[in-house]
Write a protein that binds this DNA or RNA. Structure first.
Lengths: 124, 124
DNA sequence: CAGGATCCTACGCGATACTG
DNA sequence: CAGTATCGCGTAGGATCCTG
C-alpha cells in the first residue's frame, strides 16, 4: 500500500474529488449544465420548464452554486420585468465533454446494471 | 426548447443520470473506485486507511452499492481471521477512464474554482 | 479482520407563500 | 419575472458498540 495514496485522498481540503466533483454530482447540476449546453442562453423560467420537476428553490440554489464555481454566467438586464439569462462559461463548456462521456457510459450500461442489482438483491 | 429533453430527463425510473450517475456521484464512490484502480486488489481495512476519514459504515455501504452495480467484485477467503478483498470488475474498469477524465478536469480547475468561490463570496 | 446493529445529526430537497 | 423566506421531511452520513 502506497503511503502517498493515503495522503492524497485523506487531505479533505485539497481533495479535488470531494471539493469539485461532489459539487457537480448532486441531483440537478449535471442536468442544468447539459440543458445549458444544448440550448445556449436561457432565462430562469426556461430552465425551470425544461426540467419540470425541479423546485424554484433548488434551481436557484443549483444555479448559484454553478455560478459560484464559475461554470455558469448570470447576465442581468436592468429592465422591468427583470430579465436574467444564464449561459455556460468557458470553464463550464470545458466540463461538458466529460459529462457527456459519463452520461453515455450510464446509458450504455444501464440495463446491465439493473440486472446486476436484481441478482444482488436476490442473494441478500 | 426541445421537448424530448424534458421527457428524457423527467422519467425518473428510466433516467440514467439519476439512476446510475447519482449512485457514483455520492460522497465516496468515485474515491473508492479511483483507489481500487490505482492499487488493484485491496482489503477492507486497506481501503479504510487509504481514505482515512470514511466511517466503517459508509465504506461498507459504498462497497455494497458498487458490488450491487457490478462495478466491484468482493472475494472472500474462508480463513480465520477473515480476509476479504475487493477489486474492480470489467464494468468497473470501463468506468475508470471517464472518472479519470473528470478527476483530471477537477485537478486542473481546482485553483481557479476556489478563486471563483472566494470572489463570489465577497460579492454576497 | 470485516463488518452488522443502533442511534443520532445534518443537510439536501421540496412545498408554499411572499416580494422588488 | 426572478427570485427569497420559511417550514418541514427523508435520507445520507457519522459515532459508537458489538460479533463471528
Amino acid at each position: 500500500m502506497d503511503e502517498k495514496m493515503l495522503n492524497k485522498y485523506s487531505d479533505i481540503e485539497n481533495c479535488p474529488i470531494r471539493n469539485v466533483l461532489n459539487h457537480i454530482g448532486n441531483k440537478w447540476s449535471m442536468l442544468v449544465l447539459s440543458i445549458l449546453d444544448e440550448e445556449g442562453l436561457l432565462r430562469f423560467n426556461e430552465i425551470h420548464k425544461a426540467i419540470g420537476s425541479i423546485s424554484q428553490k433548488m434551481l436557484s440554489t443549483t444555479l448559484k452554486r454553478l455560478e459560484s464555481d464559475g461554470l455558469v454566467k448570470r447576465k442581468v438586464h436592468p429592465v422591468i420585468p427583470p430579465r436574467v439569462e444564464y449561459e455556460l462559461t468557458k470553464r463550464g463548456k470545458s466540463l461538458i465533454p466529460h459529462i457527456k462521456n459519463l452520461v453515455g457510459w450510464a446509458v450504455e450500461n444501464f440495463n446491465d446494471i439493473k440486472d446486476s442489482r436484481l441478482k444482488f438483491e436476490r442473494l441478500s
